[in-house]
Write a protein that binds this DNA or RNA. Sequence first.
DNA 1: GCCCAGGGTGTTT
DNA 2: AAACACCATGGG
Length: 294
Amino acid sequence: MSGTGQIRHTREDMPCVTVKCDCFSAADTLLGGQSFRWTERGGRLCGTAFGRYVEIEQKGSRVTVYGTNREEYDRLWRSYLDMDRDYGQIRRMVTQIEPRLQDSAKYAAGVHILAQEPWEALCSFVISQNNNIPRIRGIIARLCEHFGEPAANCLHAFDPAEGHAFPTPQALARVPEDTFRQFGCGYRSAYLADLAGRVAAGEMDFEYIKKAPIDEARRILLSLRGVGPKVAECALLYGFGRLECFPVDVWIRRALESEFTGGTALIGSPYAGVAQQYIFEYIRRHPNKFVKNK
DNA sequence: GCCCAGGGTGTTT
DNA sequence: AAACACCATGGG
């Protein structure tokens, strides 16, 4: 890596766009378990989506996205970060249903629901099953580094995986099941090979799933091997814009059985998924309260 | 070295 | 329909 005259962009070189958004926390949104592709470094959130590498910096309500321009911000990042939704009103709605959320929403007031690409969300949450977040991040990073296209705009990502796009279904459809195993996917390897093959073959109409009646959307995703109720719910919430979906993992289950017994009333309400994220963020900040057998 | 994880599938009661 | 074994792996 000695300098041989190769052009290297520095942090200061990156073009950027600054926007103002009240009621938004970039860190809680990007690091809270919705996506597994963002890392915090040097006060910035660094990662790739849509095949574009960016670094996001927040100072109060000012959010700066480095590595993009206004046209691209309006086309990609604005909707990815869900900047145009009134989360204050949503918070009022869900706390009216379950007043105990007043407490947890305080910890997660700035959480937005990411509008991730459907394939990335679906594939990521198949990997997530019976797995822990650090390990999920590692598996996905290795898959991105080896099978994802380098981000077109990235000349300087700190970590090679960060500067790669999430692998396309077509790319993963060419990966043998045993290779998934070598990358640490374990018994999920068969699910991934089957999933990528089906999506690459055009069996999944993601645009239809976005608009379909919610129970039909669920039914379609549940027909995939390795996709059960929890994974389907996560994919719909984070990848298909279905904010009424309410994923229940072991942590949420414990919370519903202890501090948020009224939380089940949220299920079926239009923004249940936002409330779920409030609860998840509360758990994340009080890990000792929800450990097993407590 | 052990326990567990943003669970799902297949089988048995 | 509800309970259960089994699945691979490595972070903590």
